[in-house]
Design a protein around this nucleic acid. Structure first.
Lengths: 348, 348
DNA sequence: GTGAAATAGTTTCCAAAAGCAACTATTTCT
DNA sequence: AGAAATAGTTGCTTTTGGAAACTATTTCAC
């Protein structure tokens, strides 16, 4: 499951060299000046760490405390967290709760006792194993939590309301992405969805192709431009429902993309298959390729092709596993370094 | 300071209507299916608030506590925060500190007394107003903090190291954007920078144009495609150093863009001027337009033009203030609704 | 099966964390 | 000059939350 690169014409594009002729300033052919990508080794850079810490100082004080809704209520932060966890994972046990909230067994026990006394929580020794006590919120408990939640939501709503309305989506998207990316591996199965593009998604595809291929393979600005061209052509909608794009979401955050375009009346082309580095290993690439094959079949294409680069090892495996076969290859140096472009074909 | 829309040809583009001819399935001309933008009123939506809260629960427990570096040290969270604030705003007073950290005066006083006793903090009654005491870290204090910071950095580094290397930049970018967007107005002057594009930035320009104009003006997918086309052309680098792009950063987060392209040998064109909604009111638009004018002059263009839409009120004012004059206008319906495209010109 | 070890939860005891209100020292405002 | 306000300190208090000893149940080894 790797991003892969079904891109435009493998034929070497001739770049017109413009020589200074009659202009006040000599014109050099120069790619739009793209500052070099900040190099990234195996370890996060100091700058990255500093940026994250700046965010933490700024954000956690503001949102972290505000978010519980305990301010102004009769409950402490810890109490609210417990109440919330009981509600969320109804039927959990005390020790499970302690693990999740990092509270000592003793303290937690006392908190729960108080809640029981106040009639917010009920616990019954119903589970096969008699040592456990399954925790549940009573109706009163749910109502109480409801109130707290309302306050918390209000706080967050106010925070977000301070941002210009059309800027809010950017904030929410960003946080969702962070959450998905930092999600601990193997913790719980993430929710994966394929959906149609929304405004901004086409640009996102360009951005991520540009950033990821620059970082991983050292491709230069021309590559990002090429992706923009492909996306622009797609957006023209020239071939109506015979072309299509999907965006893959992991836990609500954009994590991948793929396009099917019309190469000819009988040939479909899979393009711009991408999987975010942080979302690899979830079989996203596999699902994206599959949906393309299905679509191409449903649209009565006779075959589906794709262009990729030989160096994209994982992508090649993916295509091979999906039934594609290598049908052509050609050297080129389109993106700033020698490479081999390949054509793969799947007969439908 | 508003985003504005110097975009492509105001002439109405003829859309070829393809009629079903000899194909198994009727081909309808259809824009790539873009799901409608989630509608946003004056208030943040419930979904947005929920997403943010999901992030908070996930993140603040993890990073907020980890980030102080107090774990394993002899200091409590509060102590580290105080130490940090003293170092950061050297010379502040105790009450200022209390406000920022939300600690009671009494508690804070005691913490500071302990620090003084341990020789980490010095306070002198040097300020004109003898009631205050200016706080400073001693050399020992700085060394101590250094150690704590190192631990904190290590924690964050580990967290980030769990993300695939090429995905880290996305996480950092996202958090930086959030911080910039939520920065309290009027609190402190943000750091503004104009820089050359980096990999991914061109795509970002497309994305933000698509998302913002869809939300604010209801433009459809064709608009985003058009932006992609402009960006793709720019990336071809056909006119070398006579074309240029700037990305505006606010506190390290991308907040705006502008391009100058070659319309003809003597005419430059300002394009894709954009200011993120959350960054408005910082004179970003003004600076972006200025830098274009300067560049066009330096490149010996005779005039600089731009295309925009009549409905973009703030942008028009911006251009007018920069010396541009309206030289042509034309009705069209390129982006899903009737609009008036305008050409503005500035003779250099 | 039976005792030993392990696990879930409870309780007691205690230390640290942190607020409150009364206090001093200085400044500012009549 | 005296009153009111502000910065900081100190003593007293409550709350928070951990450590370890304790009970109840289950599982494991023999």
């Amino acid at each position: 499951m790797t991003p892969t690169l079904p891109l435009s014409a493998p034929a070497t594009r001739t770049v017109a060299l413009v020589r200074p002729i009659a202009h006040p300033r000599p014109i050099r052919l120069r790619l739009p000046k793209l500052a070099p990508p900040p190099s990234r080794g195996a370890q996060p850079t100091d700058r990255q760490v500093d940026q994250i810490r700046a965010f933490n100082r700024f954000y956690t004080a503001r949102a972290g405390l505000l978010d519980a809704g305990h301010l102004g209520s009769a409950f402490s932060l810890a109490q609210v967290r417990v109440l919330f966890e009981v509600a969320y994972g109804s039927g959990t046990t005390a020790s499970d709760l302690g693990d999740r909230l990092h509270l000592s067994r003793g303290y937690l026990s006392r908190l729960l006792r108080d809640f029981t006394k106040k009639g917010l929580v009920s616990h019954a020794r119903t589970i096969p194993d008699g040592r456990f006590k399954a925790l549940h919120l009573t109706t009163l408990g749910r109502e109480t939590l409801e109130t707290l939640e309302r306050a918390a939501k209000e706080g967050m709503r106010d925070m977000l309301a301070a941002v210009a309305p059309t800027g809010r989506a950017a904030v929410v998207d960003a946080l969702t992405t962070v959450r998905a990316a930092l999600r601990p591996r193997l913790m719980q199965r993430p929710l994966i969805r394929l959906r149609s593009p929304r405004p901004g998604d086409l640009g996102w595809v360009v951005e991520r192709h540009g950033a990821i291929y620059a970082a991983e393979y050292g491709y230069d600005a021309r590559f990002e431009g090429l992706v923009a061209q492909i996306v622009a052509d797609f957006a023209k909608g020239q071939y109506g429902s015979r072309e299509r794009c999907w965006v893959a979401e992991v836990d609500g955050a954009r994590a991948g993309s793929v396009f099917v375009t019309r190469a000819s009346a009988r040939t479909a082309q899979l393009r711009l298959l991408l999987v975010e580095p942080w979302a690899r290993g979830l079989k996203l690439g596999h699902r994206l390729v599959s949906v393309c094959t299905e679509f191409a079949r449903a649209q009565h294409y006779r075959e589906i092709i794709l262009w990729t680069q030989a160096e994209l090892e994982k992508a090649r495996h993916l295509y091979e596993g999906a039934g594609y076969r290598l049908t052509a290859s050609k050297r080129h140096a389109m993106f700033g370094k020698p490479a081999v472009a390949e054509t793969w074909t799947l007969t439908l």
